[in-house]
Amino acid sequence: MLHKRRIAVAGILFALPSIFGIMLFVILPMLTSLLLSFTDYRIVNTPKFIGFTNYKRLFDGTDPYFYNSLWVTFKYVILRVPLGLIVSFIAAFLLNMEFIRGKSVFRTIFYLPAIVPAVASSMIWIWLFSPDLGLFNSFLEALNLPTLNWLYSENTVVPSIVIMSLWGMGSTIIIFLAGLQGVPRSLYEAAIVDGAGAVRKFRHITIPMMTPIIFFNLIMGSIGAFQVFTEALIMTQGGPNNASLFYNYYIYRQAFQFGEMGQASAIAWILFIIILIVTAIFFRTSKTWVFYESEV
């Protein structure tokens, strides 16, 4: 069919710049690092092929940090991804309610934590989490609850960092907000005619219509959570006792503090495979719950 061919040609042409760009600027360096992961490369030497040595030393326990950082990162991901989705979706939904006045101001305010530079916000967190004088512990004390050591205890450091990161959810909220603008009002109006209440509207219109965006935020949230880095660098340097030695921080340390670029590449590619698998699973399941209007 001429029609189909025309579309295919257009499709390729439209996608070509991005395909070209991604291949050149991202995939090519990625492949280079894949090759480097099979070499002994310490920046200052010529890379030397050593087979799977860099991978073996991770799995056979020669590297004392590998399993620990995997575990720490999984803990973070499992907490952060669902919480992030729920909190930001609710925030966006509330911010979008019709009766709210001063929407612009509210939206801007909710986006602020994502704008303020880390040097300033990290100071606030140090204060909020401070075991002695911090706001959180004063609050717990007032409720007669036991206080916590937050960032400074092995048990609570990961949840504390999750709380911190939830605060900077502005971007995800904005994406949800943009999505909510695309839910046709006519659907709600029809539902009201049918006598649907707020909860039913939310469950049967808002959620299904938003699934493509929820799916996007799920995928990007997971990819991002697996690569969590900045918080560990600024707030904890991986401590206490490696309890926040996130996988990506560990890669960075191996690459730029120890200069072991070959090893770092191997570590990174294992993360790549993990993220790839997780994403693939999400895509598989998406067929059952993500609803694209264009595919109907």
């Binding site: 050149l24 090519l28 490369y41 010529t46 030397k48 092929f49």
Partner: peptide
């Protein structure tokens, strides 16, 4: 310029200990 280095890195890393660089 951008395609060459990747090839270069490939050859360098495969050719092992070649010269001082």
């Amino acid at each position: 310029g951008i395609a060459l280095p990747a090839l270069l890195a490939v050859t360098v890393s495969l050719s092992g200990c070649s010269g001082s660089g």
